[in-house]
Nucleic acid binder design. Sequence first.
DNA 1: GTGGTCTAGACCACG
DNA 2: GTGGTCTAGACCACA
Lengths: 125, 125, 125, 125
Amino acid sequence: MFLQIEFESDIPIYQQIKNQIIRGIALGELKLGEDLPSVRQLASDIGINFHTVNKVYNQLKQEGWVVIHRKSGVMINPDLNVYNNKQYIESLDELLKFTTAEAYLRGVTKEKFIELIEENYNKYF
Amino acid sequence: MFLQIEFESDIPIYQQIKNQIIRGIALGELKLGEDLPSVRQLASDIGINFHTVNKVYNQLKQEGWVVIHRKSGVMINPDLNVYNNKQYIESLDELLKFTTAEAYLRGVTKEKFIELIEENYNKYF
Amino acid sequence: MFLQIEFESDIPIYQQIKNQIIRGIALGELKLGEDLPSVRQLASDIGINFHTVNKVYNQLKQEGWVVIHRKSGVMINPDLNVYNNKQYIESLDELLKFTTAEAYLRGVTKEKFIELIEENYNKYF
Amino acid sequence: MFLQIEFESDIPIYQQIKNQIIRGIALGELKLGEDLPSVRQLASDIGINFHTVNKVYNQLKQEGWVVIHRKSGVMINPDLNVYNNKQYIESLDELLKFTTAEAYLRGVTKEKFIELIEENYNKYF
DNA sequence: GTGGTCTAGACCACG
DNA sequence: GTGGTCTAGACCACA
């Protein structure tokens, strides 16, 4: 598994895992329909408690990223269709408001910022 | 004061205040050298504990956004020069990794994302 | 066989099968006295473990929906007479308490709800 | 608090609490904007672990029934607006398919069933 | 074997 | 005081 957890980070472990799984999908490292390790397996791989992984999987399920198949455990949702709803766009815009403001004041130019975005987007399949 | 606090947000109140002050500077709504309300004044305006405001001001000072004079209170740092250090760029890039991945999967195109960035940057002085 | 299993549903597979068999009887798709496939046959058709089918048949027998003959296999109870006992009515009422409450708050009017009931009942023989 | 938990039930405790809170809103026993007991308070009142209550509140928050106010804890969403989305109607219809089928075969007439619905709806504000 | 539920207790962030 | 996170270990339902 490609997960890399920073235990010292102030980002909760479960959030780090969520982030990396979602990014894994975008990068194509995780294929649609691909199985994820079992709750206890992943927990043991990372060296954390299985409840933490359970929380991740449940949130991912609730948000539509994965499905829990009764026979084969958890897999990336083969019909991934996470809606770009109004709420999401609003929260993204809110986040960018403050992120760009700080970046601007810290001397990150618009061009540099856009370059960072493009570098990321160009990696997605 | 132009602060707008969402008490039901997931973002801590002190963080909301910090965000809005920094954005206020970027937008030019807060001029360099401009006085900020006193801790107790601001706390009372927003209806929160003054310890929370205290925390905000101390963090802003620590990061170089404001200066605190014992007598004249808090003002936006007239020599604002918060450095675009390696650590900041790294954390920004880390944030964008996950933000762009989710946005991409939710159907926000690169062009749309960049448009959001430009809209924000164009408001800064 | 007309069974349609959703492996990603929150409802256990054995419950899905039970539900569909009972509904099949109500719709007249399964006649009283009609033979059901053998445990192994049905398990293989659906692609599940035969223990699961076994569980279904045993529960259906226990509740009086089917009869099991050692030789001729399982058939819909020709003298179907599952009693509308007090316990059942109570559990139905309990279920409707919460179902109607949520439906109401989600904007499903009484008329709409009743319409859904009637649509279903009108299909039964 | 008006909660009544059946520890012997096969319905999980957290689900029972959710059900009763939602019904409490529909009945008007819980007003919009009303505070709910704190996680630990409610847990102690019912005599269960606070994690169980925590799970309830988090799910209710996720589904929009309550908001978590940073100052005053958890309250019924004052702007309650839980959307009657396609997914919900589908799941309701699915539930009614099997519920009505069994009720019908157990001798509950359409009229009786509708009477049960009306009795419930007439209690809602 | 899988995930789901519940308990218990610890520590932390926030206000 | 509030909720949020993480650990640990138990028991259960399902397939």
